[in-house]
Computed example of a mutant assay.
Amino acid sequence: MSTRITELFGIQYPIIQAGMIWNSGWRLASAASNAGALGLIGAGSMYPEVLREHIQKCKKATDKPFGVNVPMLYPNIEDIMDIIVEEGVKIVFTSAGNPKTWTSWLKDRGITVVHVVSSLKFALKAQEAGVDAVVAEGFEAGGHNGREETTTLTLIPMVKEQLEIPLIAAGGIATGQIMLAVMILGADAVQVGSRFVASAESSAHINFKNTVVDAKEGATQLTLKELAPVRLIKNKFFHEIQALYEKGTTKDELIQLLGRARAKKGMFEGDLEDGELEIGQIAGLIHDIKPAAQIVADLVKEFEQALISARQIKIL
Rank of each mutant, 00 (worst) to 15 (best):
I282E: 07
F139A: 13
K236Y: 02
M72Q: 15
S202W: 00
K121Y: 06
I84E: 07
F196P: 09
A32I: 08
E7G: 04
S104E: 15
N207V: 04
G248V: 05
T151V: 13
R27L: 12
I84G: 01
L316W: 13
N235F: 05
K64E: 12
Q56C: 02
V159E: 04
S104L: 12
F303M: 09
K247E: 12
K100I: 05
P14A: 10
L307F: 11
V212M: 07
E278Y: 00
V116C: 03
I111L: 07
L244I: 09
A136R: 03
E87R: 03
F268N: 12
F237A: 08
V213M: 06
E304Y: 01
A141D: 04
I80S: 01
V116P: 00
T211M: 11
I55P: 03
I41P: 10
A187M: 06
T250M: 08
M179E: 08
E128F: 04
S119P: 05
L73M: 14
K121P: 01
E149C: 12
I313Q: 13
L106N: 10
Y47H: 11
V230Q: 05
P65L: 09
L180T: 01
K251G: 02
E87M: 10
I5Y: 04
V113W: 01
G44Q: 06
R27E: 15
E161K: 15
G266W: 03
N69R: 08
A31S: 15
A129Y: 11
K121S: 12
E164K: 15
R4C: 07
G146C: 09
G176W: 11
H287K: 14
N23L: 09
E217F: 07
F303E: 10
E226Y: 02
G67R: 10
G39N: 10
V70L: 15
E217S: 13
R262N: 05
I11E: 00
K251M: 11
A198G: 08
V134T: 09
I91V: 15
D298F: 07
P166T: 07
T175G: 12
A133N: 02
Q177W: 10
V114C: 13
V135F: 07
G270H: 08
I156E: 09
L316M: 13
E87K: 09
H287E: 14
Y245R: 10
M267S: 06
G36P: 07
I308A: 14
V50L: 11
Y245D: 02
F66P: 10
K209D: 05
E161Y: 09
A263F: 00
P14W: 10
Q221A: 15
I178K: 14
I5L: 14
P99N: 12
A37R: 08
P14N: 10
G266K: 09
E269M: 13
E53D: 14
V212Q: 07
G97E: 12
